[in-house]
Design a binder for these strands. Structure first.
Lengths: 144, 144
DNA sequence: TTCCGTGCAAAAATTTTGCATCATC
DNA sequence: GATGATGCAAAATTTTTGCACGGAA
């Protein structure tokens, strides 16, 4: 989490390279995502950004997320439920997903998978593993 | 694909066990999913089901998918884009996803990952690997 | 006959878009 | 000052829900 500042600076640098303007809203959205331990929905990101910029628009959040995704700083992860979730950790990493409530946590795995550079005509670039299961809360409240 | 019949029979059996009624709409939705080589959106499933049952309602498709998911016959896979996609292959298997257009294909991987039965308090049950890359079409039409 | 499931339509939730204004470069 | 980003509101899309009717058990 200490590298939030660094990563924001990288973001600024990248924006300048590409010719994107650096606005407080963009920085705020990315910062929220960087500081978020889980994988927030758009609505959650919006609520958080509003704490800093009360007049921000939800449309701006959507547009910013789209931009961040396009330049590769954020990845859309939508495993469960109806709304997309976002993740600022775009490095190779993995997820633990509760099949019951949809909770998502990042995990480390010891094993590696070797993916061929080309598969079914696709040029492969990265992979991520989703582990499904039941979270502690759902294990205790098992009804149904 | 030859086991569509078997799997429909399993479905019927499962419904009887649980006390769910067997309706033509349910069978049709599941059949469409079983025969689908890719991962259709709800709308696509609806269109396909309508070919057999022109008066079927979209709400029924949504409700049926929810039911199928609940009894474990179908999994929601929503890697990209805005709408959920469904997959009748609930066994351990993996996906190849185009980062540009969202195309999804099932793949086989030689490597296995050993997942501990318990992880961060979660009781783990299964996993799946998503490989990201560029599909053949997107590789040729590369304009960014 | 008894319920569960369906269809329809309306409502709710989510995402996108048009346009005038504002801020960054 | 030029251009791109924002805010607002409206539109489009996707998903859920209420309720009366119909069909499966």
């Amino acid at each position: 989490m200490q590298n939030v500042r660094e990563r924001l600076e990288l973001f600024v640098k990248k924006c300048k390279e590409i010719g994107l303007k650096i606005t407080p809203q963009r920085l705020a959205v990315y910062e929220v995502l960087l500081k978020s331990p889980n994988h927030p929905t758009v609505e959650e990101i919006y609520e958080e950004v509003k704490k800093m910029y009360p007049y921000v628009s939800l449309a701006t959040v959507y547009r910013t997320l789209e931009t961040l995704e396009r330049i590769g700083l954020v990845r859309r992860v939508c495993f469960w439920g109806n709304s997309a979730r976002y993740d600022a950790n775009t490095s190779e990493h993995h997820h633990l997903i509760c099949e019951r409530c949809g909770k998502i946590e990042d995990i480390e795995l010891d094993d590696r998978i070797s993916v061929p550079p080309e598969l079914k005509g696709f040029k492969t670039e990265s992979y991520s593993v989703n582990v499904y299961g039941l979270c502690p809360d759902c294990r205790s409240n098992l009804p149904s």
